[in-house]
């Protein structure tokens, strides 16, 4: 094992770029996942049988398929819908963001659903009593409270998402693991161990710190409530 490679500025720059890619995908996919997941949760809870069954089907579908299968499906499907070069930096970025946003939407929608259900029925009825429409009572009464209650769970799911992004390695996207793999191929097979160890340590440190922060946030919220 040889850590002198870390003194090479090119190596550091490449690893940093990979980490930034992973972070970008995490943030964009989380936002996308919440944006798609919230309507899904509302559909799941609605009295309309078609909407509710569609949301149930969507969630069950994505919970039943391995993530790498989903990554591959979108990686081959998306270029047929949108025109983009799949071998550049932006192609894999776009493909990963869309894949993870759609995939995580299934998980976020379940979280949002339990968040909405945690708000007592009386609050919704109070909203209706004030003359709010369904949309208004969701927007002004239910969702603000629901999001606050489920914030720790959402962030935990985001940490899982952050870890799952390492799987885009399989479509040779330039994420953190992908970059480390490319570097290992450039500098020879004996550096493989070094690079993978660095990746493992960095992943551990960042997710551990994040999960501790979430834990603290959870305690803070729990005290206020």
């Amino acid at each position: 094992m040889d850590f002198s490679l870390l003194h090479n500025p090119d190596v550091i720059a490449a690893l940093k770029e990979g980490f930034v890619f992973t972070l970008t995908v995490t943030v964009l996919a989380m936002l996308g996942g919440i944006l798609i997941g919230t309507p899904l949760a509302m559909m799941r809870l609605s009295s309309n049988a078609i909407a509710s069954n569609f949301a149930k089907f969507y969630v069950d579908l994505f919970r039943g398929i391995p993530l790498i299968q989903v990554i591959f499906i979108f990686y081959f499907l998306l270029p047929k819908i949108f025109e983009f070069q799949s071998d550049t930096y932006w192609g894999p970025l776009f493909s990963s963001v869309v894949t993870f946003a759609i995939f995580e939407a299934a998980f976020f929608s379940e979280i949002v659903r339990s968040g909405i259900q945690s708000i007592s029925r009386g609050q919704v009825n109070a909203g209706y009593a004030l003359g709010f429409t369904y949309g208004q009572s969701m927007r002004y009464v239910v969702l603000p409270q629901a999001f606050r209650n489920m914030l720790p769970v959402l962030l935990t799911q985001t940490i899982i998402l952050f870890q799952d992004i390492s799987l885009v390695y399989v479509i040779s996207a330039p994420d953190f693991l992908g970059r480390a793999d490319t570097l290992a191929n450039t500098y020879g097979p004996e550096t493989k161990a070094t690079f993978y160890l660095i990746v493992a340590v960095v992943y551990f440190c960042s997710s551990f710190v994040l999960s501790q922060l979430v834990k603290r946030l959870q305690q803070k919220i729990a005290i206020i409530r």
């Binding site: 693991l177 493989k192 993978y196």
Partner: peptide, 22 residues
């Protein structure tokens, strides 16, 4: 538990395959 939970599975696979034997 914290170590195994905070490292992605694929990185763990590579760890056991390539780092551990060293």
């Amino acid at each position: 538990v914290e170590i195994f939970r905070n490292i992605p599975l694929i990185v763990q696979l590579f760890f056991w395959a390539f780092v551990f034997p060293e």
